[in-house]
């Protein structure tokens, strides 16, 4: 049964190219599917261009949602990447 886990992150910087790349690389280490939700938009964490198109800016809150057997670990790792990649 797939587990689901969500955590929110206040972005320290715009979700621009480098952090978006880190999100993809980090999410790929887990088997869970990971999505980033910003307002009404949702982007799969496998697509760097979709993440960039969220247009999420510094100070805004995004939700990291993971679904799968390692959902809590995946959500936390991606959230950490977002909090620490400038």
């Amino acid at each position: 049964m797939p587990e689901s886990s969500e955590t929110t992150v206040v972005l320290p910087a715009h979700l621009h190219a480098r952090p978006a790349g880190q999100v993809v690389v980090t999410a790929a280490k887990f088997t869970s599917a990971v999505e980033i939700v910003y307002g009404a938009k949702t982007a799969n964490a496998r697509g760097v261009l979709a993440l960039l198109a969220l247009g999420a800016t510094a100070g805004e809150t995004v939700t990291v949602r993971a679904t799968g057997p390692d959902a809590p670990q995946a959500a936390e790792a991606v959230a950490t990447a977002l909090r620490t990649t400038a």
């Binding site: 978006a20 790349g21 993809v24 690389v25 790929a28 280490k29 496998r46 697509g47 760097v48």
Partner: peptide
Amino acid sequence: VAAAVIAATGADLDAVVDAAEE
């Protein structure tokens, strides 16, 4: 950009081609 990031995850050739085309 899309292809390089997916390649960095260790994805295979088909997945990298798909990412670029998407």
